Simulated assay, not measured.
Amino acid sequence: MTLSSDLLAAARRWAADPAAWPIQPQYDPDERWYARIAETAEHEVWLLTWLPGQETDWHDHGGSAGAFTVVSGALVERTVITTPRKRSAALHVSAGAPGGGRVRYMDLPAGSGRRFGTHHVHGVANRGEVPAISIHVYAPALRSMTRYRLVDGKLRVAEIERAGVSW
């Protein structure tokens, strides 16, 4: 079993047992709400809520692998198809999306999950009409996240956030 599949299994275990969550989900009308609900030597677990229309920008997880599962509602993940050898401050993408990049959308209804490696860049959104809840697991624990903008077909670094400062 790989690290990312272990992370998805952990996310599914946490999603299946809301009574074990040390905090109840909350909803913020201005932005998605999140709280870390567990941390072990191997990984950390986050609880997120999403009101209709709430979304993240393009971001990575600072070198952490991860997985998430949708507890209720539905989410959409968007990823940019990148050229792996060209990862740098500007990630090159292939033709097809705004600015020339190719964006892939994946619908994630309740019960579905997603795993990803250490170089994954994505955005997640609630495009539905009802609130959504998701559980996210990262290894190692998040220490930074890079935010990107898609400009002229390339993902450009917008900012780098740090644990303990930005969240």
Score class of each variant (00 low, 15 high):
residue 1 M to S: 13
residue 2 T to C: 08
residue 3 L to K: 03
residue 6 D to M: 10
residue 6 D to K: 12
residue 11 A to G: 14
residue 13 R to C: 12
residue 15 A to R: 14
residue 15 A to E: 14
residue 16 A to T: 10
residue 18 P to Q: 06
residue 19 A to T: 09
residue 20 A to E: 08
residue 23 I to V: 15
residue 24 Q to N: 11
residue 26 Q to M: 10
residue 31 E to N: 02
residue 31 E to K: 05
residue 32 R to C: 07
residue 33 W to D: 07
residue 34 Y to W: 10
residue 35 A to C: 12
residue 36 R to V: 09
residue 36 R to T: 12
residue 37 I to R: 09
residue 39 E to D: 12
residue 44 E to S: 14
residue 45 V to P: 04
residue 46 W to R: 12
residue 46 W to K: 13
residue 47 L to G: 09
residue 47 L to A: 10
residue 49 T to Y: 12
residue 52 P to Y: 03
residue 53 G to E: 05
residue 53 G to R: 07
residue 63 G to Q: 09
residue 64 S to L: 06
residue 65 A to R: 09
residue 70 V to D: 05
residue 71 V to H: 04
residue 72 S to T: 13
residue 72 S to A: 15
residue 72 S to N: 06
residue 72 S to Y: 04
residue 73 G to M: 11
residue 75 L to E: 11
residue 76 V to M: 07
residue 77 E to I: 08
residue 77 E to M: 11
residue 77 E to A: 15
residue 77 E to V: 11
residue 79 T to P: 02
residue 79 T to V: 13
residue 80 V to C: 13
residue 81 I to Y: 01
residue 82 T to M: 04
residue 83 T to S: 06
residue 86 K to M: 11
residue 86 K to P: 00
residue 87 R to L: 06
residue 88 S to G: 15
residue 91 L to N: 01
residue 93 V to P: 00
residue 94 S to V: 02
residue 99 G to P: 06
residue 103 V to Q: 11
residue 104 R to T: 08
residue 104 R to I: 09
residue 105 Y to E: 15
residue 107 D to S: 14
residue 109 P to M: 09
residue 109 P to V: 06
residue 110 A to Q: 11
residue 110 A to V: 09
residue 111 G to L: 09
residue 113 G to K: 04
residue 113 G to E: 07
residue 115 R to L: 04
residue 115 R to D: 04
residue 118 T to V: 00
residue 118 T to D: 00
residue 121 V to D: 00
residue 121 V to L: 00
residue 130 V to G: 00
residue 136 H to L: 02
residue 137 V to H: 02
residue 138 Y to P: 00
residue 142 L to D: 03
residue 143 R to L: 10
residue 144 S to H: 03
residue 145 M to W: 04
residue 146 T to P: 09
residue 146 T to W: 06
residue 148 Y to I: 03
residue 148 Y to Q: 04
residue 152 D to W: 01
residue 154 K to Q: 14
residue 156 R to M: 13
residue 158 A to R: 15
residue 159 E to F: 11
residue 159 E to K: 15
residue 160 I to R: 15
residue 161 E to T: 12
residue 164 G to N: 14
residue 164 G to M: 13
residue 165 V to Q: 14
residue 165 V to W: 11
residue 166 S to Y: 12
residue 167 W to Y: 15
residue 167 W to F: 15
